[in-house]
Amino acid sequence: MLDFIARRLVSIIPVLAVVALFVFFMLRLTPGDPAAVIAGDNATSDQIADIREKLGLNLPIWQQFGIWLGNMLQGNFGESFFFKKTVSELIAQRLEPTLALSICTLILAVTTAVPLGVIAAYRQGSLLDRVVMGFSVLGFSMPSFVIGYCLIYVFAIELGWLPVQGYTRIGTDFWAFLERMVLPSVTLGIIYVALIARITRASILEVLNEDYIRTARAKGLSNRVVLMRHALRNAAVPILTVIGVGVALLIGGAIVTESVFGLPGLGRLTVEAVLSRDFPTIQAVILLFSVVYVVINLIIDISYTIFDPRIRY
């Protein structure tokens, strides 16, 4: 197992190398000049050229890449072109809201979707099953910002139960933090719930036809025990897989959700950096997301061994 983990961790390096190359060159080959953005609307060509030189953007592209790579290997992700902070500081500052949103969404999604999927499978063909599946199609089809605006309109503006936007750090005021996490987590979670519920239902349905389920029932075990201890556990592998794959959805969704709800997280930082062509920040954030995605999937792979002892690495 340790070998497997070590091998997977080492395999992050080529992944990051490809991502780094791709992001670096793609940024510099697409239209947009951070120097022009920094200089402002009233700047002249000379002023822009001057800023380009100060930022090192007039160097040959390979040289820029070499400098960036060399710095990165020493743990220096550079300084943001705009914020006058190191990229590491910026990321550290924006990490909490994104982590909080992701964790809250994950908890909400898994605790909602898995039971829904199980019940839908158990009551296959019933009204409840159709409602759950219908909701799943709707949740997966609607863009998250539409869901967000609808929830804001109902719960924040009409009913006044929850805030429209903003973030309170967990250490500042836990209840205010929770209050501000409800709508964003539900917004982002709906898509995730839709996905997980569907896969859970399909997975459970497959397992419910197995002999050991029939045996468990024949032994007189209750439906709850049959479903939770035998069926769900054996259906866990595909469910875990979709949770892992869904991390990509979470990252993408966080970008939109943070912008809508004014959460000062990494998603919003990415949007701001892309719009202003803040190359060092974009590069570092995308690399970070890549690492997160790979590590999450490694954790998912490891967790298979807990649910299915037959799986060994």
Binding site: A156, I157, V164, Q165, S259, V260, G262, R268
Partner: peptide, 18 residues
């Protein structure tokens, strides 16, 4: 000065008194 890029949200927030 609250940074709020979404203009619809700005309107929602001022109506809500935030």
């Amino acid at each position: 000065i609250i940074e709020m890029p979404d203009t619809q949200q700005q309107v929602n927030a001022i109506i809500a008194g935030e």
